[in-house]
Design a protein around this nucleic acid. Sequence first.
RNA 1: GGCGACGUAGCCAAGUGGUAAGGCAGAGCUCUGCAAAAGCUCCAUUCGGCGGUUCAAAUCCGCCCGUCGCCUCCA
Length: 468
Amino acid sequence: MLIYNTLIRTKEEFKPITEGRIHIYVCGPTVYDYSHIGHAKTYVAFDTIVRYLRWRGNSVRYVQNVTDVGHLLDTGEDRILKGASRERVEPMEIVEKYARAYFEDMDALGVQRPDISPRASAHVPEQIEMIQTLIKNENAYESNGSVYFDVTSHKDYGKLSGRKIEDLEEGTREDVREEKRHPLDFALWKKAAPEHILRWNSPWGVGFPGWHIECSAMSSKYLGETFDIHGGGIDNIFPHNECEIAQSEAAHGKPFANYWLLTGSLTIDGVKMSKSLGNFVTIKDVLKKFRPHAIRFFVLSGHYRSPIDFSDEALEAASKGWERLAAPALAVKQKLNSPLNAGEADSGIVKAIHDARTNFISAMDDDFNTATALATLFDFNKVTNTLLNSGEAITRGTLEAIDAFYNETGAGVLGVIPNQISSSVNAEREAGLIQLLIEQRAAARVRKDFAASDSIRNHVEGLVMREA
RNA sequence: GGCGACGUAGCCAAGUGGUAAGGCAGAGCUCUGCAAAAGCUCCAUUCGGCGGUUCAAAUCCGCCCGUCGCCUCCA
């Protein structure tokens, strides 16, 4: 399996530290507002990657943090505190509300929950401990109640984002605070101003942790000091990911993550999404207009590293594409609910499934190429459609083999095909009733009662659409 | 200004040295009472432009043009 490793900017063979066991960490959201469509892209991508790694037989531990401590805006305000004052509630109410909303959105999109969703606020002692180590190692220093990481103390600083300390110095826009020795030094711990509500005791006084330290502390706690994959959005490559590496490697004296997978950003109508531009689109908004499977299909029809542009037109096209992708799989499930001839799976179909599976795997093995993987399903759909249209008797074994293939790949790995036709416990009875209507319509057509036939057709179509 | 990514058909999008996947849209045919769905066929001699390397380039190199992202909180 090949993976593009941003650390070395090339694809390379993926080798987990322990064969068959993969530890992955992905930077999670800061929960101070509703999640947007950009989060959907990132987390659907990693969800699919994790599903695939598992499907290939690996045992995966997937950790994704929930940032609930809040970080400083350029106005000096804390994002979570700002949200709290906006809504006139406790900071932790904000955190709770939006953390729940985040998981609701992810659940709706079929994103499987990470194995561990550690919260920054629940890991302050671990962060303090790590900061102490960094001070002891002379990679960090205290200054006026705050602690900063000394970027000049770590020779590899900049290795992920390809930046050099010298180049960055000139472009620094941030006001150089006299507390820092170097303008690029970043905060590990910040002294809390009196009005700052989120505060903890520490060896350096009352304060709160810096933005980057939580990911370092929590990843090493749950995945080890060196782990396999670190993921996130490309927009966090600098400074966040860079600082994570510097802190972790300085504290532990060993490599942090072996493979860095960073997803491309999402733009809206060609421009970056931002609140100030008023083009901030939440997942909840999109779910009102488009079905979750179509959103996943949209995300997965491009490569995870490529940027994608969101627009209603693009989602509408994706919805149509999704219908064509899923229709044969749903038709097979429908047919499995009706009486069928028992029998083994047709050997030609078994061969076609085998070929499709091989193609699917080779696409996904090549840096999780979901676009090509989807194409292999479209190709296989021709086999299914031709069979379904042949008018010949199809055995239950054949349909079950096809169904199993769609369930594994389209449903299990990509999450774009429903793995069952309806959650209703009466699905079988409903299918029987629909079958009865179809027969009634056929009878009406034979006696050329087209009014009755069309009426039945319209009703059945409505039922089947809702069910799918 | 610095760093990085990208530019493939009307649109979206794979493809990183061997002769252009797939989807949407569009055209024709088959099937049909009419439709829908589905099937078959067609739809880029060509990959932003210009040079170069090579038996061979969308793929490698150089220059130019254009778009986007990051450098400040961001998935």
